[in-house]
């Protein structure tokens, strides 16, 4: 474990806490894409298949349980909770997320480290996580003004994989035989998708104005 990866994990956890706070306290999911939340639940479900078979550390297991639990409860809140579901912006959250699932699965079948069920699903979860934010970014551009909590949620979500990129560079130079081409490619694509969001996020923060993404 290094400081970059720990910061990345905590930033990821922060993004989920910001989202849960928004949904749980003000009972609203306005501006949040259910499609992206469903994709994240699928990402964790296919990535943490070995949660009960491979023990790495208490931290690792606890964090996996937190990510699984929070991602599924967010989907539940947005689909089932009597008040929260009313604020779901169904008309603008229309990105066909299965258009992302299928290509990621096909790519995982072709481009993986080992052709086993678990490895293909794990690789699928990496590819899917890289593009899972797209429905959310599309929704942000469609919803006129972005509230602070949603903006902060997307910011922390983008920052976490950015810290992972630094972690991979650090591990590449400090651990011999640390080669993760597939992980690195997916991580670079994932972070690159946030670049324009980061630009507008910092610009709005510098000019102290409301965050608005150009359509």
């Amino acid at each position: 474990m290094n400081i970059f990866r720990l910061t990345g994990d905590l930033t990821h956890l922060m993004s989920i806490i910001v989202l849960l706070l928004k949904i749980h306290t003000i009972k609203s999911c306005a501006g949040i894409s259910l499609k992206t939340q469903e994709l994240y639940a699928l990402v964790f479900a296919t990535r943490y298949l070995d949660i009960f078979t491979t023990y790495i550390s208490l931290y690792n297991t606890v964090m996996k349980l937190i990510f699984l639990g929070t991602s599924f409860s967010i989907v539940w809140y947005m689909r089932r909770h009597k008040t929260v579901r009313l604020s779901y912006d169904k008309n603008n959250d229309t990105f066909r997320h299965y258009f992302l699932v299928l290509p990621c699965f096909l790519l995982a079948l072709v481009l993986n480290n080992r052709f086993t069920v678990r490895e293909v699903l794990w690789t699928f979860s990496l590819y899917l996580e890289a593009v899972a934010i797209i429905p959310q970014l599309v929704l942000l551009q469609r919803s006129k003004n972005v509230d602070n909590l949603t903006g902060n949620y997307v910011f922390f979500l983008g920052a976490y994989r950015g810290f992972y990129l630094i972690n991979w560079i650090y591990r590449y130079f400090t651990e011999n035989h640390y080669r993760r081409w597939i992980t690195w490619m997916a991580g670079i694509v994932q972070t690159a998708l946030y670049v324009d969001f980061f630009y507008y996020y910092f610009k709005s923060w510098k000019n102290n104005e409301k965050l608005k993404l150009p359509a």
């Binding site: 990866r5 491979t54 790495i56 550390s57 964090m63 996996k64 794990w122 640390y178 993760r180």
Partner: peptide
């Protein structure tokens, strides 16, 4: 923990 082919990351 030992890296299980890179699976020691979340």
């Amino acid at each position: 923990g030992r890296s299980h082919e890179g699976k020691d990351e979340l």
